[in-house]
Design a protein around this nucleic acid. Structure first.
Length: 688
DNA sequence: ATAGGGTTAG
């Protein structure tokens, strides 16, 4: 009937009825066609179409239409304004939202229409403008619960939970009774601030005022208690709920994972079904993220497969949760596969996904890959900049870390305390002493950020690595925060390098108190003694370790060849190719000696373990892994080895020669940083 | 016109 419409033969009120019909049923193409046939569409027709585009998830088109209408100088009414305000909120389109607000003022609706006012508050909140939301709120002569809730939600949305709670208080003082929506809006603000007492107060208010249970509120309470680290309280509320939905379950799962209790979380995950609740994609994301956070990487991958088996497609959140596992397993290949999946699904546009990818590349040793992601990001926030700075620091590119920092400041991106952790650690790895002191001093002066224990430790590290041990020690004594293990550890490490026995003793004794179970500190001090030929002291340390039941963490290194990760421990003789590897290493050593390599036997003694000492330098796990890599990887591809402890000094020297003589690029990531060996040099400038 | 869970940096 409508296949060949002609405006002259169909009365306009009939066209209008059809327009309404198609708009209501989501057939926007048809609705648009009809709309375009109306020679002079009236406001009502415009409104119907604008409303439909917002309602059916195409808010951009609504906004476009609205401004088309304004061009025709048709005066908007409150209904169109409401619809387009919602559309601006959905698109986070602040600049258009402001124009809509101006229209609302110009045509006199802000003072008269509560509903529109509320929608405008909401629009500003969703667009990230807390000031805008507050302005609308202040201009409204009448406010109801929804206005109050909307302004509170705006603050939560804009990352100002303290303001949200202030609003909630004021709301009470204005004799507006909060309803369940208001409470569930404001509970996450308590969680963000870890405001347990306020959260408890709100809990009391809920108990006193409502008999009936509300799932939103109860789940919010569970979450609030969990985030305020009251796991028992969270569980009590959860257990007391008469009806739980999928969100309640997801909250309790996350609670246990964040508390490190994977067993309980996994148990609860299995028991949901018994209550007739089946896991949704968010449940799987919570499970995968939780497992990975707690080191259960394999389990996470199983859950990922299980999730896909159920027909749930991994989304942005899934892949950002999985990516850290790729760095943990040092599986660049797996990470790149996820990158590919992200590209195919347009997830890489997401700033959080992109940041996670960036870090994955950096942690897998591919700094260029990390940089490509960074350059491609359309919008970069503080976290993205911090991650890029940290990536450069890890790889020993202190200058680049600093120049990124300057660039970030010039662009007006606000740094935070993590920014400085990245910059300072980058400086310390690159011996940029003056630069690091300068940026440390600028923290509170220019950026209003109070240095924390980590920042102080970085400075100790900088001074120590520069050989300014006394200054480093004085700095520790003067610092206004309790010196952490990081600070003393940095000093102890420098004492090892600069062979300072007395300060080494002092630093180690502090460490023995702060972290009595960390074997590394005992080993370091014992090495310092051995080096100074203080054999008695060294054996005392070894006795101390035995008495306390502390064993040395075995050094292990691994490398990926094709799809497999091969792991080596010191003196490893069990590997399939171990005979070949040792023969290869022997021959290689000979060649390197001719080129000037001198083995440093100091490091043969670095291991307290008896058997390991016997193996000497030749069997260090990183040497085995590198040799294996040279033997098994194609010529021209670079060798990427990962080690759980700090790289040994002799191995470091050995690799510099290897890189030059064999003509390969070797990358070793140890527990401190990345080392890139190339043509006889290491990116760390022999400083680690 | 207002509501909850799963995600990125140390």
């Amino acid at each position: 009937m409508l296949s060949k419409p002609s405006t002259s033969s169909v009365p306009s009120h009939v066209t209008f009825q059809f327009l309404k019909f198609f708009a209501n049923h989501g057939n926007l193409g048809r609705a648009r066609q009809l709309f375009d046939q109306i020679p002079e569409p009236n406001l009502h027709s415009w409104t119907i179409l604008i409303n439909a585009y917002t309602k059916w998830g195409i808010p951009k088109e609504s906004i476009k239409l609205y401004f088309g209408l304004r061009k025709k100088e048709i005066e908007p009414d409150k209904f169109v304004l409401l619809s387009v305000a919602k559309a601006c909120a959905a698109c986070s389109d602040l600049s258009r939202g402001i124009r809509v607000h101006e229209d609302a003022i110009r045509f006199g609706f802000v003072e008269t229409d509560l509903v529109l006012g509320n929608a405008l508050i909401n629009m500003y909140g969703k667009c990230g403008s807390a000031e805008g939301a507050q302005k609308v709120f202040d201009d409204m002569p009448m406010k109801d619960v929804i206005s109050w809730t909307s302004i509170a939600a705006s603050y939560v949305n804009c990352g100002l939970p303290g303001e949200a709670l202030r609003v909630f208080r004021e709301m009470g003082l204005s004799r507006v009774r909060p309803n369940s929506v208001a409470v569930s809006t404001v509970l996450p603000a308590c969680s963000d601030l870890k405001a347990l007492n306020l959260g408890r107060e709100i809990h009391g208010l809920v108990v006193r005022n409502w008999q009936g249970e509300n799932v939103f509120v109860s789940s919010g309470l569970v979450d609030m208690y969990a985030k305020c680290s009251s796991i028992r309280q969270a569980r009590m509320v959860f257990d007391s709920m008469t009806r739980r939905d999928i969100v309640s379950w997801n909250v309790i799962l996350t609670t246990y994972f964040s508390n490190g209790d994977c067993e309980e979380a996994l148990k609860l995950f299995d028991s949901m079904k018994g209550e007739g609740i089946s896991a949704n994609p968010a449940s799987y994301n919570a499970m995968i993220g939780g497992c990975i956070h707690n080191g259960l990487n394999e389990r996470a991958l199983e859950l990922l497969a299980q999730m896909q088996g159920l027909g749930f497609k991994p989304n942005q959140i899934t892949i950002t949760s999985v990516l850290p596992a790729c760095a943990n397993l040092e599986s660049l290949r797996g990470g790149m596969e996820i990158h590919g999946y992200g590209i195919r699904h347009w997830f890489v546009e997401d700033i959080i996904v992109a940041t996670a990818l960036l870090l994955m590349y950096a942690k897998c040793g591919n700094l260029e890959g990390a940089r490509r992601i960074f350059d491609y990001m359309p919008r970069k926030d503080t976290v993205a900049w911090n991650t890029m700075i940290l990536a450069n620091s890890m790889h020993g590119h202190g200058e680049e870390a600093l120049s990124l920092f300057r660039e970030m400041i010039d662009l007006g991106i606000k740094p935070n305390s993590v920014t400085f952790t990245g910059v300072l650690s980058g400086c310390s790895h690159s011996r940029l002493v003056d630069e690091s002191l300068a940026s440390f001093n600028s923290m509170s002066r220019d950026h209003g950020i109070k240095p924390d224990a980590d920042h102080y430790s970085c400075i100790v590290d900088v001074l120590g690595r520069a050989g300014r041990l006394i200054e480093a020690y004085e700095f520790i004594q003067k610092m206004p925060v309790e010196p952490s293990a990081g600070a003393w550890g940095a000093l102890l490490g420098s004492c090892r390098v600069y062979k300072n026995v007395e300060l080494g003793r002092i630093a180690a004794n502090h460490l023995f108190e702060i972290e009595p179970d960390n074997p590394g500190n005992y080993i370091l001090l014992s090495n310092i003694f051995v080096n100074a030929e203080l054999w008695d002291d060294a054996s005392k340390i070894r006795k101390m370790m035995r008495d306390r039941g502390i064993t040395k963490t075995p050094g292990c290194s691994w490398i990926q060849v094709k799809d497999r990760v091969y792991t080596f421990v010191a003196g490893d003789k069990k590997t399939a190719q171990s005979d070949k590897i040792y023969r290869f290493l022997d021959e290689l050593s000979e060649k390197l000696r001719l080129a000037g390599y001198i083995p440093d036997f100091d490091f043969a003694l670095q291991d307290v373990d008896q058997e390991e000492k016997e193996e000497g330098l030749g069997g260090h796990s990183e040497k085995l892994a590198v040799a294996f890599g040279i033997m098994n990887l194609n010529k021209g591809s670079s060798i990427r080895v990962f080690k759980n402890l700090r790289i040994c000094g002799d191995c470091h020297n050995f690799f510099k020669f290897t890189a030059k003589i064999v003509g390969v690029q070797i990358m070793v990531r140890d527990s401190m940083r990345f080392h890139h060996f190339r043509d006889g040099f290491c990116s760390c400038n022999d400083f680690w």
